[in-house]
Structure formats: C-alpha cells, structure tokens
C-alpha cells in the first residue's frame, strides 16, 4: 500500500479501486467510548450477577415444589390426581413415597431436604 493517507489517490488492487476516505468522526468517538468502557468494566465490575448468599425464605415453597415437580406428572394424566390425597394416605406413607418412589414414580428424596418435604406435605394436606 502507498504510504501517507493524506492524498486521496485511490489504489487499484486486483482491478478493484480502494479509496482512502477518512474514518467517520462518529465512529472514532464510538471506538473511544467502547475502549474506555472496557477498561472501566475490567477494573470495577464483578463480571457476573451478584447472588445473595442466602435466598430469602419462600412462604409458599411447598406449593412451588408441588407445582414445579409433582404436577409435571400428576397434572398431565401420566400419574393419578392428588386431590385429597392426605385423606387416603397417612403422612408417613406420603413422605415415604416422595422419598423412595413407588411403581413408576421415581424417588426424589435426595433432591429435597427433610424440611422441604414437610412443606410439600403441609401443602398436600389442603390440596383438593
């Protein structure tokens, strides 16, 4: 390439004319903004979302687990309806099924704490 971009004579490369127009000012401004942002981000930002160490206690955790997990089968016809299940089975039996599974239902006890399973049972008691 020819040295010195001041004179605007175009080069011809492979029969294609290549001009030497200046970089638009707006673009130069964008370059600087991006570069300054990058340095600032590198120094001052954590690079990921700050997550609170202990999530706030959820009042309706039993319901959330029930809807998010149990209903995936028990509301789709893949497994029996659970309305009024607490009247048909004892507390111990229900918790046992959740922990160890039964027939086609997988054991899910290892995913949840004892407390969480209690909350699911609490919710099931009033589920009609």
């Amino acid at each position: 390439m020819k040295k010195g971009h001041e004179h605007k004579e175009a080069d011809i490369v492979s029969d294609i004319k290549v001009e030497h127009n200046r970089v638009p000012k707006l673009l130069v401004a964008v370059f600087y903004v991006v570069a300054i942002w990058a340095i600032g981000y590198a120094i001052f930002m954590p690079g990921k979302l700050a997550v609170e160490p202990a999530a706030a206690p959820q009042e309706n955790k039993g319901e959330l687990i029930f809807e998010g997990t149990c209903l995936s089968c028990h509301a789709t016809g893949a497994a029996p309806d659970l309305s009024g299940v607490a009247e048909r089975m004892t507390e111990e039996d229900i918790k046992n099924v959740i922990k160890n599974g039964r027939n086609t239902m997988p054991a899910i006890g290892h995913i949840y704490t004892e407390k969480e399973i209690d909350l699911v049972y609490e919710y099931l008691k009033d589920y009609r």
Binding site: M1, H5, A10, D11, I16, V18, E19, R22, V23
Partner: peptide, 16 residues
C-alpha cells in the same frame, strides 16, 4: 465493488 461498480470506501477501515 463488483456489483455496484463503485470503489471500496476506505482502506483504513478495512484494516481496523
């Protein structure tokens, strides 16, 4: 440049 028949705008921008 082939389709429009116009010269390429800026060598410097190509480099950047």
């Amino acid at each position: 440049p082939k389709l429009t028949g116009r010269p390429l705008y800026s060598h410097q921008l190509s480099m950047i």
